[in-house]
Simulated assay, not measured.
Amino acid sequence: MPSKEEILELIERASQELKEGGVNPDILLAGPGFVEVLGEIMDVLNLSIYIIKELEYDAVIADSRYLGQVRKASKRISIEPLLVEEEVWKEIKNL
């Protein structure tokens, strides 16, 4: 499981990129797997969080005012590569 610090860093990086693009991210649409890994970090984010079953281990951080209207108003984050990397390291250790 990716560390909470890694997840927080991904979210902060995506948020900063959106801010540099001129939007103010205020919502996080997240899959159940993503929310499960987030745990208690959700309280620290200062974002409205909505669970979207179809996103699974992904999340979309966005500015709700422009979501669906402006392409650069959202950014998708995936923790699936982190989960795969973790499994690869486990397999290597078992060799």
Rank of each mutant, 00 (worst) to 15 (best):
M1K: 09
M1P: 15
M1W: 15
P2W: 02
S3L: 03
K4R: 07
K4F: 00
E5L: 00
E5H: 00
E6R: 00
E6T: 00
E6K: 00
I7R: 02
I7H: 01
I7T: 06
L8V: 06
L8H: 02
L8F: 06
L8K: 01
E9I: 01
L10D: 01
I11H: 00
I11V: 04
I11S: 01
I11Y: 02
E12C: 00
R13A: 14
R13S: 13
R13K: 11
A14L: 05
S15F: 09
S15P: 00
Q16R: 03
Q16E: 13
Q16V: 12
Q16M: 04
L18C: 06
L18M: 08
E20K: 13
E20N: 14
G21H: 10
G21D: 13
G21R: 06
G22L: 10
V23H: 08
V23Q: 04
N24M: 14
P25R: 00
D26R: 03
I27P: 10
L28R: 02
L29H: 01
A30V: 13
A30K: 11
A30W: 09
G31Q: 06
G31F: 15
P32S: 08
P32Y: 15
F34R: 01
F34Q: 02
F34G: 00
F34W: 04
E36F: 06
E36K: 03
E36S: 05
V37E: 14
V37H: 07
L38F: 11
L38H: 05
E40G: 12
E40C: 05
I41G: 01
I41A: 04
I41L: 10
I41R: 01
M42P: 03
M42D: 06
M42C: 05
D43W: 11
L47A: 03
L47Y: 12
L47W: 12
S48A: 13
S48F: 13
I49V: 15
I51E: 14
I52K: 12
I52V: 13
I52S: 04
K53A: 08
E54A: 04
E54S: 11
E54V: 11
Y57V: 05
D58S: 09
V60G: 03
V60Y: 07
I61T: 04
I61P: 12
A62N: 08
D63Q: 02
D63C: 09
R65H: 11
R65T: 14
R65G: 10
R65E: 10
Y66G: 02
L67S: 05
G68N: 10
G68H: 10
G68T: 10
G68Q: 09
G68R: 14
G68K: 07
Q69K: 11
R71K: 04
R71D: 04
K72C: 07
A73E: 08
S74A: 11
S74N: 09
S74Q: 13
K75V: 10
I77M: 07
I77W: 12
I79Q: 10
E80C: 01
P81S: 01
P81M: 00
P81H: 02
L83Q: 06
L83G: 04
L83R: 09
V84Y: 14
V84S: 09
V84G: 02
E85C: 06
E85W: 15
E86M: 08
E87W: 08
E87M: 06
E87H: 05
V88R: 07
V88I: 15
K90H: 04
K90Y: 06
L95H: 15
L95R: 14
L95D: 05
L95Y: 15
L95V: 15
